[in-house]
């Protein structure tokens, strides 16, 4: 992507242009070399939005909940960005992104922006570009950003690091194997939602989660366990209140900065790792690399010394850029 285009798009973004936001998200998803130019131009304008992650097993009602929560927040006058992540297929890399099916009510509201995103091989329930897409919607000026994870059902630490508040959804009738997962989810949940409470067994699930917390409450915040039937919008206003309550808790205890620090720490390590891997992959295609292999086989050098040399090549390549 050419420099002037990015300059124009980021300028438009900061003026609140939704189309520019859409185009910029495409760029950060596809063009690793352009990401830096996008984010460096908007980074100063980020940090205003409240970010909420929503995770839970497939079919638990994440998208339906977002549809209802976003409508509710709009009634309260807040603008809402939504990033809905689904898994890419391990075969061929395509993806079926179906979260919009449940978000019909909010599609044409100009105070809402919905973007579907595929994981593209990332394991933690969000994509590599999700964090940057959040920044773009933040810079666009949306008040609150809701991120739906791909719902791997495992502890999704990445979403916890990306958000202020992480909601873990569960539903009755998932069976015993979900128990083990719940333990992993304990660490990331700021709020539990037991959805589909219109069905039998919700109270038992609430009880189970609450009893797991009886002995594990080391933090100042004890995650509330809410019952919802989001399909009928039951429990949405309380959920919205609790989300804000948690955000206020973070603010009052100076924990926003702490979370940010944790996020930035992870983020720069990941970015640096990606850059190195990318440079390394380029070097592997080079003649110099093939020559090193030959030299190792001929015992002129050894694998470890060769690796040192490769690191020097990575550095040289990067400086050249």
């Amino acid at each position: 992507m050419a420099e002037p285009d990015i300059e124009v798009l980021t300028t438009q973004l900061l003026k609140g242009d939704r189309r520019a936001a859409a185009k910029l998200i495409t760029i950060v998803e596809n063009d690793p070399d352009a990401v830096k130019r996008v984010i460096s131009r908007i980074y100063k304008n980020t940090g205003k939005a409240q970010i909420v992650g929503i995770t839970g097993p497939p079919g638990s009602g994440k998208s339906t909940l977002i549809n209802q929560l976003a409508s509710y927040l709009r009634q309260k006058g807040r603008t809402v960005g939504i990033i809905a992540v689904d898994a890419s297929s391990p075969f061929g890399g395509g993806a079926f992104l179906g979260d919009r099916i449940r978000m019909k009510d909010i599609t044409t509201d100009k105070g809402i922006f919905i973007r579907s995103m595929a994981t593209r091989g990332c394991k933690g329930g969000i994509a590599r570009a999700t964090g940057d897409a959040i920044k773009i919607l933040d810079a666009l000026g949306y008040d609150i950003i809701l991120v739906e994870t791909a719902g791997a059902g495992e502890a999704e630490v990445d979403i916890m690091n990306a958000s202020h508040t992480t909601i873990v959804i569960t539903v009755p009738g998932l069976g015993d194997d979900i128990q083990a997962n719940k333990a992993g989810m304990m660490e990331i949940a700021d709020l539990f939602v037991v959805n589909k409470a219109d069905r039998e067994g919700a109270d038992i699930v609430v009880y189970e989660i609450e009893s797991m917390f009886r002995f594990t409450d080391k933090r100042g915040w004890k995650p509330p366990v809410l019952k919802t039937a989001v399909i009928e919008a039951i429990g949405i206003s309380e959920l919205a209140e609790r989300i804000d309550e948690h955000f206020n808790y973070l603010k009052e205890n100076d924990l926003i900065g702490e979370r940010l620090k944790r996020r930035v720490e992870m983020e720069i390590a990941n970015i640096a790792k990606e850059v190195m891997v990318r440079e390394l992959e380029e070097i592997r295609k080079s003649e110099a690399y093939k020559k090193l292999i030959e030299e190792i086989i001929e015992k002129k050098t050894d694998p470890h010394s060769a690796a040192d040399e490769i690191m020097m090549m990575v550095k040289a390549r990067y400086i050249e850029k």
Binding site: G94, F96, T108, S116
Partner: peptide, 27 residues
């Protein structure tokens, strides 16, 4: 999808406005 594309599926009963708005946001 099987051919490697990312398919955003909106489902049934969409109005022209909903479709075009989604096309913009999803780029």
């Amino acid at each position: 999808r099987d051919a490697g594309m990312e398919v955003i599926y909106m489902g049934l009963h969409q109005t022209p406005e909903q479709i075009v708005e989604a096309a913009i946001q999803e780029d």
